[in-house]
Design a protein around this nucleic acid. Sequence first.
DNA 1: ACGCGACATTGATCTGAGTCAATTTATATC
DNA 2: GATATAAATTGACTCAGATCAATGTCGCGT
Lengths: 268, 268
Amino acid sequence: MAISYRAGPVAVGRRLGPEEFVSVRTAHTHDPLGDWGPCGACDLGPLSFCANMGRGTVSSLARVQCTLRYDAQDTMFREGDDGTAVYVLIAGAVKVYKLMPDGRRQITGFFFRGDMFGFCLETAYAYTAETISPVLACRLPMTLLRTLSQTAPEVQHRIMLRMIGKLATFHDHVLLLGRKTARERVASFLLSLSDRACRRGEPPSPLVLPMGRADIADHIGLTVETVSRAMTRLKRDGLLDLPSPGLVVLRRPKALRGIADGLTPEAA
Amino acid sequence: MAISYRAGPVAVGRRLGPEEFVSVRTAHTHDPLGDWGPCGACDLGPLSFCANMGRGTVSSLARVQCTLRYDAQDTMFREGDDGTAVYVLIAGAVKVYKLMPDGRRQITGFFFRGDMFGFCLETAYAYTAETISPVLACRLPMTLLRTLSQTAPEVQHRIMLRMIGKLATFHDHVLLLGRKTARERVASFLLSLSDRACRRGEPPSPLVLPMGRADIADHIGLTVETVSRAMTRLKRDGLLDLPSPGLVVLRRPKALRGIADGLTPEAA
DNA sequence: ACGCGACATTGATCTGAGTCAATTTATATC
DNA sequence: GATATAAATTGACTCAGATCAATGTCGCGT
């Protein structure tokens, strides 16, 4: 793999790796695709922020967009940094978290291919973003909202849709953290990953977990040990298989859903 | 005060009480205030969604806006209802929550004077909104975003700012629920109310709690008993006074902040 | 002033998840 | 393939907060 990784908080790749991100083309390339078409800087297709967007708008975005490459465990931005851009993940996985002074950590979200994060506007980032695996991301400066608000209200509108979606997931996650048992949390978490895989057009079941148990624990408000025990128990109860720590086969998704929603008594 | 209120999905008052909402004027009344000025349907002043907004935009909003009255314990909308409008609270307090089939409840937010909630866009509401006290609210249909996106991108932009603010509070609340102790949660909750009071131009300290202990518990992921015990202990430790259950005097806000942030060892 | 009902507080006990400590299993390196 | 290292699992024990059960307090209508 002849990929040149660059050190730095925002390693910018001029060229892309050959296999991993095959159909990615150079940013700023504009094919003559007619009135509707992609920007060319990513291969997200229908998941793209620009999917089915007016060509004029797309080229405005393409002009300010840049495609960034990160290694695993890179910090993309830190809590308190000036919020200057939103990111759309093209490949890889990202976690965002907040830390307490004594080291307690809460992962407030995971992001995958097609996801947008880093919403900000005249504000600092409220959390730190760190890559879990090597990442390719499209960076959109938020100043573009001012610039494009007149000519392309579509852009604001789409970002708003993403924010509303994120708000809805927060409501769900707050319910999970405030009121669900360990078993229910793990079931809910796995199902939410599965649902998101489906929305990306991937199969719901052989589920790949790019994050470790510690990250899962810090996301759903448990300890590593409790996450592990809950998983083992779900496996023992025939609800899922764990061929390897990073792979989950959902064997009885509906029963899992029942547990996630608190319909199944804990003893079962 | 000649005010006309519309009936709605839920109990709408025809007339306003004389003292409570004194300076509220008729919606759709347009005073000749020059290029910048309020819509006239509320007395929120600088807290208003329309504060310092172009007069043309304001009158567009005033045209579609309507002012609603609710009694205490009214349901404004339910989880799953078509999301058609956002609300700005002019007076009173609202809680929004999600329920689990077995009755467990998570209050995902409280809203007060000046707050906007009910963000939606081609989506159903993700939660139920219920008033805690009598409420006066300004209702803005979300279709206006489509209508005004060209002529008044300002409106989208302002809603987006509110959403970003809400996202930031969700990150904080997820940290609270996922990683804080009972004592830290109660301290954080009281301080967040205090901060919000300040932002409304009210004093930070004699804090009025319009919600009961059960609501607080369902918001910060505890039981009534634990909330009560934590409050009592904070009082015993001289950090606050509780002249009555609904009134909190913050005696040592900085020490309270230390507890909220986990800087003070639990034993203290 | 009285009594009722809702809400808040306090106390005693229980338990689900945390903590501490190995042990096992994957992954990476040579 | 052998070995080192990190991650995951499992087990024993503890504890913060839940549960169950009174008791106390406030507001309100009569």
